[in-house]
Each structure stands twice: as C-alpha cells, then as structure tokens.
C-alpha cells in the first residue's frame, strides 16, 4: 500500500511537472534556471523562512561544532558519506547510459569499502581513479528530457523542483540500496536509525562545508531567497549536463547586446 501511494505521488508530480514546465504543451525540453517557474512562491517563501529559522536555531550551531572536529575526522566522514552515495550514483550512471562511469564507480566503491574501511579512506583516489561525481534520480529524469517543473522549497530539506522531488521518492521505492538494506533489509546490523543518522550527517557535513559562503551570500543579498533559488537551479542544470559551467551560461547571448565602452 505504501509503495502504491508513493508511486501514485511520483506519477502525479511528474504529470504536474510536464504541464507546469511546458505551458500546457507536452514537449520534453530542458529548461534553464531562468525559465523555471516559481508557481508556489508565497508558500515557498514561508517555508524558506521556516528553514532559515531552523538553520539559525539548530543546524548552523551543530555545523559550527562539527567544524571544530579535527580535519581528518571530517574528511573521513565526508569520504564515507560520498562512498555510501555511490550506491545511488551507480544505478543512475547505468540509467543515463554511462556504463564506463558505472564501472569506475563500482570499482571505487569496492576498493573504498574494503581497503578504505567503509569508505573512510579514499584509497581509489590515491590509485588514480577519476574525480567522483554524484548522480541522482532527479538528474537522470533531467537527462531524459523531463523539465524541472515548478521550483519548490521543502521543509528542512530546502530547495528542489517537482522533478527533483519525484526523483527523491524513487530512492525510497527501491532505488537506494542503502535505504533498502537499512529500512527494508531483514538484518540485525542495520535499522532506520543508521539510515536516518547518515542522512542527518550528510546535511550537517554539507552545511559545515558551506558555512562561510552561505553567511557571505546572506549578508550580501538583497533577496536571499531569490539568490538561493538561482544558485540551486544553476547547480542542478550543470549537474545534469555533467559540465563545469553549462554551455548556456558560457554562451549566454544576453551578454552580446551589452555595450558599455
């Protein structure tokens, strides 16, 4: 029953997405960050304020405390979390037709989990493996041509789009082996607690790595909500294209008509 509800939700989200992202025309086109509609702006801004308050009260202080930990501890935690995330990256590599990357990431996961002691040490990197790039189901839907649809701000989880939210649901429908093993797996070593702990730690780790840049952005923005939205959508766009700096940004035609000299 639970799976049925989730599947229904994903279908609903993606159907809404196709309509919302294409002005009623069901053509599957990739939308740039400027074209993603903020259909629920009022609710989004309210949720954003709630998340900001939560961040100030709980998440930021925890992230600051976490940052005090010795650098090798933080690096080890970050490595282990990255290693765990490759369980979602590998199936997405395959779904995107990136079989070579899937092979490399599988090799990296095996080496780091065993020789690197549960991923704490990035042994594969020392062996010359290429830089690790995370993939998720939202990105895969993007590469399939599904438009992002409306922009969303989720409570606690933060910025997203309808497509990316639908992608996250796929994780709990069997798309994330770590979720399957810890929540659904019938074993005595893993439970919901371990799964929740890794998700919370991922959030704290991200927040700790970005304390200065988020503070700087907050201080120098005249509309912090709009800045975060723009940065999130640009980031997703380049992750889907798997390029540092999407071509759309580099060849932005709007610059051509600016005469100032």
């Amino acid at each position: 029953m639970k799976k049925f509800i989730i599947t229904f939700l994903i279908s609903l989200l993606l159907t809404m997405n196709v309509s919302a992202g294409t002005d009623g025309e069901n053509s599957f086109t990739k939308k740039n960050s400027g074209q993603v509609k903020d259909c629920f702006e009022k609710i989004n801004r309210t949720t954003f304020k709630f998340n900001e308050a939560l961040d100030v009260a709980i998440i930021e202080p925890i992230a600051k405390a976490y940052r005090v930990l010795p650098s090798p501890v933080r690096a080890g935690t970050s490595n282990a979390l990255d290693n765990l995330s490759s369980l979602v990256t590998i199936p997405n590599n395959i779904l995107q037709g990136e079989f070579k990357k899937a092979g490399v990431n599988t090799g990296r996961f095996v080496i780091n989990t065993t020789v690197g002691i549960l991923g704490i040490f990035n042994v594969a990197q020392k062996l010359g493996f290429s830089e690790y790039e995370k993939e998720d189901y939202g990105q895969t839907l993007g590469t399939m041509g599904i438009s992002p649809g409306c922009y969303l701000v989720l409570p606690i989880l933060g910025p997203s789009t309808i497509r990316d939210t639908a992608g996250s649901f796929i994780n709990i429908l069997g798309g994330d082996p770590w979720y399957n093993a810890s929540i659904n797996g019938n074993n005595e070593y893993l439970s919901k607690t371990q799964y929740a702990a890794t998700k919370i730690l991922t959030g704290v780790n991200f927040r700790a790595q970005n304390i200065d840049s988020i503070e700087n952005l907050k201080k120098n923005s005249i509309d912090f909500y709009a800045s975060v939205k723009s940065l999130y959508l640009q980031d997703r766009q380049q992750k889907i294209s798997n390029k540092n700096g999407s071509l759309e940004i580099i060849y932005d035609g709007n610059w051509e008509e600016i005469e100032s000299q």
Binding site: S33, G34, I222, S227, L231, I249, D252, W255
Partner: peptide
C-alpha cells in the same frame, strides 16, 4: 577594447554571479 579588458562575470564552480544577481533583481 583590447587595450582595456574588463571583467564582466565570475563563474564559481559553474555558478554565474552575474546571472544570480540578475535573477535576484528580477525576483524583486
């Protein structure tokens, strides 16, 4: 003007500062 080049944008890890600012202004 080759004698007087000027910076127009910084793209940090693929994120354009000018575009972020443009979308911020547009939102307001």
């Amino acid at each position: 003007n080759l004698e007087n080049p000027k910076i127009r944008d910084l793209i940090i890890e693929g994120l354009s500062l000018a575009r972020t600012q443009k979308e911020e202004f547009s939102s307001i």
